[in-house]
Simulated scan of single mutants.
Amino acid sequence: MKTPYEERKHREALSWAKGLEKRGPIIQRKSKRIQTTINNWVPERVHKVVSGSVKQMIELSLTSSHYIYPIEVGEGWTLKEREEQVGARLKYYKRTAALEGAGTGAGGIALGLADFPLLLSIKMKFLFDTARLYGFSVERYEERMFVLHVFMLAFSSDEKREEILHRVLNWEDEKETIKEVDWKTLQLEYRDSIDFVKMLQLVPGFGAVVGAWANTKLMEQLAETAQNAYRLRLMGY
């Protein structure tokens, strides 16, 4: 039997999942043309940095302990206690991401390029912490794959979101059919989802403000996806 807190969070998670099934606003659906234009303006080295960073992130997250370090997790924690710890971790990582975005954004393109791999690392560390705080062992390959799917769900287009959401919500059945991640598709989806705000960060003069704001919002977007995904996994869809 669920506690009142669990009931409330379960309803919120179900509502969140239902909302993801809807198409994005028209401005979002038409943004692909804008993104394509922006992509043509951006130096190729920027795209190479993003692609290389995502590929490296996937390889590290699946094959190494790069994102795993000791944190305290109580086996008997209630959902509320677990989420209080997740909230504390999010606060820490948001502050880190904002400082990093402001610092690299202030330097224009040169330092802005460094922001992509740094922010990816912060996001993955947060996801690995979140998974463990909800009671899942990221030592297992299948749990690392779930973490990657949560990441993809947070930064996917309308066209890909439905497919990824189905996998996340039906993970016990889907995990056996997933052997590897299409990193090329992942990096394109991720890049297109953050292009507009992150490319503004490369503009000297106000890049620091944009960098801090953008990184904070991207962390909040990731946290919302992760928390609801794990709630539904724990309490059922």
Rank of each mutant, 00 (worst) to 15 (best):
L113R: 00
L113Q: 02
A114N: 06
A114C: 06
D115I: 05
D115T: 02
F116G: 07
P117F: 05
L118V: 12
L118S: 12
L118Y: 11
L119P: 02
L119F: 12
L119K: 10
S121L: 13
I122H: 11
I122P: 07
I122W: 07
F126E: 14
L127Q: 02
F128S: 08
F128P: 03
D129A: 02
D129H: 07
D129E: 08
T130R: 01
A131V: 05
R132K: 06
R132I: 00
R132H: 01
R132G: 00
L133E: 05
L133W: 05
Y134W: 08
Y134K: 00
G135D: 02
G135F: 01
F136C: 04
F136W: 09
E139S: 12
R140I: 13
Y141L: 14
E143A: 04
R144L: 05
R144Q: 05
M145Q: 14
M145I: 14
F146T: 00
F146Q: 05
V147Q: 04
V147P: 00
V147K: 02
L148P: 07
L148Y: 08
L148K: 06
H149W: 14
F151P: 08
F151H: 10
F151R: 06
M152Q: 15
M152C: 12
L153V: 03
A154Y: 02
S156L: 08
S156R: 04
S157M: 09
E159V: 09
E159G: 00
E159W: 09
K160D: 14
R161C: 02
R161H: 03
R161L: 06
E162C: 00
E163V: 12
E163F: 07
I164F: 11
I164L: 11
I164R: 10
I164A: 11
R167C: 08
V168N: 02
L169I: 01
N170Q: 01
D173C: 04
E174F: 07
E176F: 15
T177E: 15
T177Q: 13
T177N: 15
T177M: 13
I178L: 13
K179W: 11
D182A: 03
W183N: 12
K184D: 15
L186C: 00
L186I: 01
L186M: 13
Q187H: 12
Q187G: 03
Q187R: 12
L188R: 10
D192K: 09
S193G: 04
S193N: 09
K198M: 10
K198R: 05
M199K: 08
L200M: 09
L200Y: 04
V203I: 14
P204K: 01
G205I: 04
F206Y: 12
F206C: 06
